[in-house]
Nucleic acid binder design. Structure first.
Lengths: 375, 375
DNA sequence: CTGAATCGGGAAAGCGCATTCCCACTACCT
DNA sequence: AGGTAGTGGGAATGCGCTTTCCCGATTCAG
């Protein structure tokens, strides 16, 4: 990767490198127009492209923003990534991508790598977890993040704060009201259905999953319903599918038992994310069960690609792209700092409540065909 | 973004920066074990993280690989991105992401930005196009790429070669046999259906779309069938939806005309990608038409997220992730260069034929429910 | 036991750029 | 006219690291 340098351009234009620098890359001092022209001409006759590494080194700031996701092919993360990318472009910065599969140890690696590249800020998407096997990893991640922030880096994490991070200067959280929204979903579902509920959740300790489960149960309780049983499985389609099989058997057994009263064995299933819901639905269908006839099902996230799924999936719409944008903007140089953060822009943003560094977004319960209890 | 420097570490360890460098970042020369220990201890007591910018500047290579996609939230690109990311990790490099919406002008910007960051290589995914309004943009993109390669950069483009690129050293193409596969799909569809075919294509000039259309027509011809009508629309879900509406009206008009012979008005629709097919299917469904009863439909790509769509979509499976991996590996430092490129690894890879810099991948026609012509 | 070869470490020169400091010069004010 | 402020340019320094070159200390062969 050799290329022509500023010095070469300067020589060709017959000026000093300092002058060339001033004209080519914005500086407070504007050289005379004639000289500027000469330099510019020299520059593009040489096909000069400034070396961002050198620039970064000289002014210690890289124009890079690091994005950490579990899996970029997961539509949830892809949507967030789009928002991040968009905001990054606004700020004329580039995004560095890291995928970690959700393991804190890997996330720590990624943060270190970003720090090494002197990324100006880091956006971490993807559920935090408190699983015991991740404890050490979480601690290390937190330490790494703290160090990064102490060195002037800015961090935004989507969802929950990183466990153990001491929320230093420059640390932001874009909080997703999983609990409230899940509760709202539960209440709405409860108003149209008075049978049993079942929850398909992710592994215990995964905050996003746990919050949604807790919220759903609370919503159920506030509607005067008994708590739903919870099936723990993995936080992806395969997990949903597996749980779906289990539930299918349960439903079918129920149907066989009380053939006279088929509705009695019907279930309303809440899967803690759309992808799991789709997996579960596939399993049910394979077992000959129809949705919403034999069971109703709802998800969470409102993944765009899944909107054409039939029956249309009831879910909670999350402004994923907006979340990405918000998180990114929160880490922008001029963005809301330590103190007061007045109007955080964006219609769906609400005032934070935690030390002013937190930002909440909102979602919307979206009932569709998959939970219609036909009459 | 300040942080402790090598010099500080060196001072703390009581050695010269040169020595510290040698122990901390691999070098041919291995300092003595006692010294190495001292340095390492100093390093992590200081929380030293090497400055990749400075390293890059010094050895002029950045460990960065640039990825250009139309839209990271599009599952097609997301899948490729996952492959790229995976391969990048193998090579211990990081990926820089740029999304361009497919505009050559933007792509040129992205290449320039990557060049500025001194990315070691660039992977361009996303259809090339020959539309007249893009002509200038294409030329500039080609020029930019040429320059990048001349400066030692390595490029891999997925699908078609960039129009006008002079295929310099370091320029690779991962060719997708769109034409052959579309032809195969057409032949298979033709063997089970003897009515009319319609193609929903992208805008004229988009290579991927044009190739698939051409291939499909060829396949039809080789099966002794007359060419399909082609509807041009945009290369995304919205386009598919729009075309779907048009077709729905056509089908319904046909049904009304020959009520006695409903099958006569039935259509087999080939949408040039899955997302468009889904859009079209949604439109048909909204118009009260059922698939595959009133019309059959096939797509292309076999997007993973769409596999749960009902009726299951017939399509052509493309190893998207593998494509990403292959493209990335092709640009790896040690990878197949100008000359012979023996065993390109990967089961689905076949021997290139074009000057040894081309690499072909293979796909597979996958017929599912959406094109079942029930009896 | 001596000369050459080797090893292990440090000094120093960049990598490409931004930026501070400095200097020559012009314009302006009194 | 003398002085000052202001202006436009260049020289030089440093960002943090790698790498060549160099030098003293060992080691080995003869």
């Amino acid at each position: 990767m050799a290329a022509s340098t500023l010095t070469e351009v300067a020589r060709l234009a017959g000026v000093s490198p300092a002058t060339a620098s001033r004209v080519l890359n914005g500086s407070a001092r504007k050289p005379g127009p004639d000289i500027a022209d000469r330099v510019r001409q020299a520059a593009d006759s040489l096909g000069y492209i400034p070396n961002a590494q050198a620039q970064g080194l000289a002014k210690s700031s890289s124009g890079l923003i690091g994005l950490i996701v579990h899996d970029i092919a997961d539509p949830y993360f892809a949507a967030i990534a789009r928002g991040v990318q968009e905001a990054a472009r606004e700020q004329r910065r580039m995004v560095l991508l890291a995928t970690t599969g959700g393991a804190p140890a890997e996330e720590k690696e990624a943060v270190a790598a970003f720090a090494a590249r002197r990324a100006d800020s880091i956006v971490i998407a993807g559920s935090r977890s408190a699983q015991p096997e991740n404890q050490e990893g979480n601690a290390e991640l937190a330490a790494e993040l703290d160090r990064y922030c102490r060195n002037g880096g800015r961090v935004a994490v989507v969802g929950h704060a990183v466990v153990g991070a001491t929320a230093p200067e420059g640390y932001h959280v874009v909080a997703v009201p999983n609990e409230e929204l899940a509760a709202a979903l539960a209440r709405q579902l409860a108003s149209g259905w008075d049978g049993d509920f079942v929850i398909i959740g992710g592994p215990e300790g995964l905050f996003t999953s746990d919050d949604r489960i807790r919220g759903f149960q609370e919503g159920l309780a506030s509607a005067g319903r008994k708590p739903a049983k919870v099936l723990r499985t993995s936080f992806n389609r395969a997990g949903g599918y597996e749980a779906g099989l289990t539930l299918a058997h349960r439903v079918k057994a129920g149907q066989a038992e009380s053939a006279d009263e088929p509705a009695a064995s019907k279930l309303c299933i809440f899967a803690v994310n759309d992808v799991m819901a789709i997996g579960a639905a596939a399993a049910l269908r394979e077992q000959g069960l129809r949705i919403p006839r034999d069971a109703t099902i709802a998800g969470f996230d409102d993944i765009e690609t899944l909107r054409d799924f039939r029956p249309a999936l009831s879910t909670v719409r999350l402004p994923l792209e907006e979340i990405g944008r918000l998180a990114t903007r929160a880490t922008a140089p001029g963005a809301a700092g330590t103190d007061r953060d007045g109007e955080e822009s964006a219609g769906s943003a609400e005032e934070g409540h935690d030390a002013g560094r937190q930002q909440r977004i909102s979602g919307e319960v979206t009932l569709r065909r998959s939970t219609e209890t036909a009459t």
